[in-house]
Design a protein around this nucleic acid. Structure first.
Lengths: 252, 252
DNA sequence: CGGGTCATTGATACGTATCAATGTGCGTGG
DNA sequence: CCACGCACATTGATACGTATCAATGACCCG
């Protein structure tokens, strides 16, 4: 069931019950992967469209010197590009961080039938836009912010993304990633990632207990992070889009 | 005229004359901007779809401390996201680096009519995919490569992108960017960008003459850059896509 | 209880930022 | 036509952020 994906899409625009049923009906199979299992390998032929339904994964690249750069995290409701269909080769891999459940969509049907579901079309379109925005913000973070701000910023972003799919409780969430992964995502070393986390904890901007992260004062953390959630484009669709959809004019 | 855009798209799949005429017919106006003029400002309401037809621009973000991160360069044939239509606010700005000509597309017609041009649809789809891939490679570069490799890598990428639209001669192209901009794009300082360029020149991997860059030995530069062009996805559409299109099955 | 993964901390090395100064080419106005 | 100013490139000296190396500690699972 694509509950998380649907929840996320509905932050942009409402979906009808038939739309949701259609989406859920696209799931051709659901697999559970153990931690560190590759869902998609760089260089291989793309194999369809996948949706993370539980657990967490990340997109990554391995560089010639063996270093790894994590490009983005994938939480429940995140999916691979619709577009795997168009390319001959994956330019990055996707690996599970912990035990992860992945739904596979029937991409033939998706392509063939999506046109009759304009609300879903637009919502998935927004989804791909948001992905790009997240990536751009990451470039800005890694390129121009210091390690401390980068860590704080990513923690804010993860909070927002998990909140959208109901994976937060109060100001608390399961921190799904190790410090190595945090470093690999932010272009810093594991050791430095640890120091920055400790500093954030010392300054009472975060509190960690086992794998649970608590944000006692979200405003304070956001200030330290220079975090401005607008880049996530969470305000919902512009009226013009909704009007066009309800008039069935946006897509014939 | 969208000559460069069309040239670029045809590296993915062939377009028919009617398709090209339709694309060119979408241009509602063409404006010339001077250097440093903003085409799109961060935070403003998106204003349609733009295509760079001559000159060069860049996407960028300004951080709270005044620092700038350049997210990507835009050369002739590069366009803004199709999707500006869906969002309420731009998450980044676009500014001209030199004198630049920008075509504005009639986005209403684009949305309404694109469906009757499946080859164009798929080509633009590929285009947005490639944009994502470029951004991901930038994350990997900034996050995990040293400054020397980053500079070399970007120079290789720019060469490929300009080559696609016929803006290179032999192994030479107009280097359209200053060293400040190079630094802002790669997350390094202007001074260090200069040193890396000088080192590349000293090692005979590049030669600069005014604003013209020559790559005497492309293999050597690529080796120094860890550059592997596969992430640009230049091989053209998979046969399955072409077959589906010619059978008119990919899009009804 | 042992071994593995992950977190933590200190000491040191290195890459890159920053500051400062000079050089170079080019367009503009006198 | 030349002098000025301005943007950009270049180079050296120094400071700082972060990587790396190394060792220990904490926790979990079989």
């Amino acid at each position: 069931m694509l509950t998380s994906l649907i929840k996320r899409l509905e932050h942009f625009l409402p979906l009808s019950d038939p739309d949701k049923e259609w989406l859920n009906g696209l799931v051709s199979r659901s697999d559970e992967f153990p931690a560190h299992a590759d869902i998609i390998r760089e260089g291989e032929v793309p194999a369809g469209v996948f949706v993370v339904t539980a657990g967490q994964a990340c997109r990554y690249k391995i560089l010639p010197d063996g270093g790894r750069q994590i490009l983005d995290f994938m939480f429940p409701g995140d999916m691979t590009e619709l577009h795997g269909l168009l390319l001959k080769e994956n330019d990055h891999g996707i690996v599970c961080l912990g035990p992860t459940t992945v739904a596979r969509l029937d991409s033939d049907r998706l392509i063939r039938e999506i046109i009759s579901h304009p609300y879903v079309t637009v919502a998935l379109w927004w989804n791909s836009l948001q992905q790009g925005a997240i990536l751009r913000e990451r470039v800005a973070s890694i390129g121009r912010r210091d390690a401390y701000t980068r860590v704080a910023h990513l923690l804010c972003e993860i909070f927002e993304r998990l909140r959208l799919v109901g994976e937060t409780v109060d100001h608390t969430y399961m921190l799904p990633i190790t410090q190595v992964e945090l470093g690999d995502a932010l272009g810093i070393s594991e050791v430095h990632a640890n120091r920055m986390l400790r500093r954030l904890a010392r300054e009472r901007l975060i509190a960690t207990d086992h794998r649970v992260l608590r944000i006692p004062d979200q405003d304070a953390l956001r200030a330290a992070a220079e975090f401005d959630a607008r880049y996530l484009h969470l305000d919902g669709a512009p009226r013009a889009v909704l009007d066009a959809l309800s008039a069935s004019r946006l897509l014939p």
